[in-house]
Write a protein that binds this DNA or RNA. Structure first.
Lengths: 336, 336
DNA sequence: CCTCCAAATGTAAACGTTTAGATTTTATTC
DNA sequence: GAATAAAATCTAAACGTTTACATTTGGAGG
């Protein structure tokens, strides 16, 4: 009774050959009901569980995917992950989750480790959009779906948020409320989301004939600290902005902390619109107006695309989706 | 140049046998530098990546673990996961993450799926502490570590938080501030954390000679909604409590929303202490006093224990850790 | 009670590694 | 330069499946 039972053990116990057992396990039919019953019983008696490694050796597939994100503890990713994981489970897949801490090198190692383990596909929010570190990965042609951050040089599926539009909507709102000095705390311009949200900002200013002022653009790095620091910089300007648009959840958090610290009153002295609808948004007073991304849907769609690619092996062209963010209007922007 | 390169291909290219290649790959030494160089070159030329499935067939180990939690989108778990994942990566492990949606059946399926894939160990926050659904799993004797929720009937390592103490500290604080009508919105009494926090509450009342009042105990289910509803029940009491202790992050969120709705002023009409230091805590006005759990440390310790068990195969006794929570005093409890 | 055919079952090779044990090569000593 | 020991390398057998192909079995029809 030692070590895990194998298909051999089951075959012996049921008095049949391993081929027959295999057929039962895989539900391929062509087995006499009486025989099948014996086999099923043997399986239960021995608590037999099939060995995926051996199975993989023949069939290649592992029914396993990898999910690689820059930062597991950023609330955005667990929400995306939950969408992925749920859909994956429905299809009999199971997902590795790895964080890269925004490091290209770690990302490369993680991907290698995933390839070794034979994942059928990978969903990636890359730490480095230029994507040169991914060549090794691409060579293996394992299906890859980019989420949230694009890989412009790679022929892979994309699931992105329409960042330009989200930012545009936010700025438009602020402008319509009479603001003219609008600052943006944007993400690293080396990333698509960072760049696109800035573009949306500029487009809105342009469309409404407001002038663009360098001083109102602070480039953060998506961290809470950078949001905090940015507010400090804006506050000491000769003409501080009357409205601030923060480009991700963490920087929003930092921004709000800084405002609180500086006694720069949210909703009275300064209007704020944040990116991403975090818990926090409805708890600050006044409640925060935000651009909300459909995070779970992002994950679900990403898995669906990946799954399609895994199933049909023929090459299909690169597909790009841009889900629309939604402006959720609360109370943090006052009329000017 | 098609299909992934195998150790065979490398051997042919380098003009050696597969055994020698294997030795190089695994850094076992006993290979002439010149030979090794040829092999390394061949590996690079062919972009060879070793096949974990085949390797697993011989060595058993997969350098893979499973992490199973009730709810991926509850911020608590990603934080634990980040601790696990980081330590795991350092040791060359990679982790599956699965959510069970608090369902025993899903949990069972997920675990089976993990066993099939040969995980070396599992870190589990179970949906059902009685643990009967885990017998199949235990039979396989795969190392298992229980995190946050205990499995009292199972001989497995535990990494818990001292919930009793955390609750005690919170209630003690409230009592010392002069409160006598203190409510608790606790978790399901079928779970250890649910029960233990209630026990801590009772102990504190007892030690300070306050009488215990059934009406001030509301059993929630750890969901935001249940926290919200609980406050409703407390509010309509003839003698509403002057302080509320909420037993997890989601219920705290629900509680705060309800207070806001009812215009039951936090920190003025009612004091609140929450469990878990969520972002939100520093954003409500007044800032929330909380019992804070060391979530990342929880994950790190869990992996460490698991790793130890995986390494040394000899049976070691069951180990239990209780990490201490910390009372972080802010402004949400006023003197009575 | 044969024949014969389809259905059921069995046999054996392959998947890509690791590794014990056999064999070859190299270096050392006289 | 032969003998020998040590080092390097090779051969081949597993590991637990799946699956093409071979073989057996059970009945229907005569």
């Amino acid at each position: 009774m030692e070590g895990k039972a194998t298909i051999q053990d089951v075959a012996r116990q049921a008095g049949v050959s391993i081929a027959t057992v295999s057929r039962v396990i895989n539900g391929q039919g062509g087995v006499r009901p009486k025989t099948e019953a014996r086999i099923v019983q043997a399986i239960e008696e021995l608590a037999y569980i099939r060995n995926a490694a051996a199975r993989t050796m023949k069939s290649k597939a592992t029914k396993t995917i990898g999910v690689v994100v820059p930062d597991i503890s950023n609330p955005f990713f667990p929400l995306v992950m939950s969408g992925i994981e749920e859909k994956a489970r429905e299809q009999g897949y199971i997902a590795f989750l790895s964080g890269t801490k925004e490091s290209t090198v770690v990302e490369q190692n993680v991907l290698k480790s995933l390839i070794e383990r034979g994942v059928d596909g990978v969903i990636l929010t890359t730490a480095d959009e230029n994507g040169q570190h991914l060549t090794q990965f691409i060579e293996q042609d394992i299906p890859l779906v980019a989420v949230d951050r694009s890989l412009p040089h790679l022929e892979v599926d994309h699931v992105l948020v329409d960042n330009r539009k989200g930012a545009y909507q936010a700025i438009q709102r602020l402008i319509l409320q009479g603001h003219e000095r609008i600052a943006i705390i944007c993400g690293p311009l080396s990333t698509t989301p960072g760049r696109d949200r800035l573009i949306g900002y500029k487009e809105a200013l342009h469309d409404f004939h407001l002038s663009f002022n360098e001083a109102y653009v602070i480039e953060g790095d998506f961290s809470e600290q950078s949001g905090y620091d940015a507010v400090g910089q804006l506050y000491v300007l000769e003409e501080p902005p009357t409205a601030i648009f923060t480009c991700n959840n963490l920087m929003t958090t930092g921004c709000l902390k800084a405002l609180d610290n500086l006694q720069w009153k949210l909703g009275r002295d300064v209007s704020v619109i944040g990116f991403d609808d975090i818990d926090l948004a409805t708890f600050v007073q006044p409640k925060l107006t935000v651009v909300s991304r459909p995070m779970k849907a992002l994950g679900e769609l990403a898995f669906q695309l990946l799954h399609e690619r895994i199933e049909m092996k023929q090459a299909i062209g690169k597909r790009s989706y841009q889900l629309s963010p939604e402006l959720i209007i609360r109370e943090s922007c006052m009329l000017k």
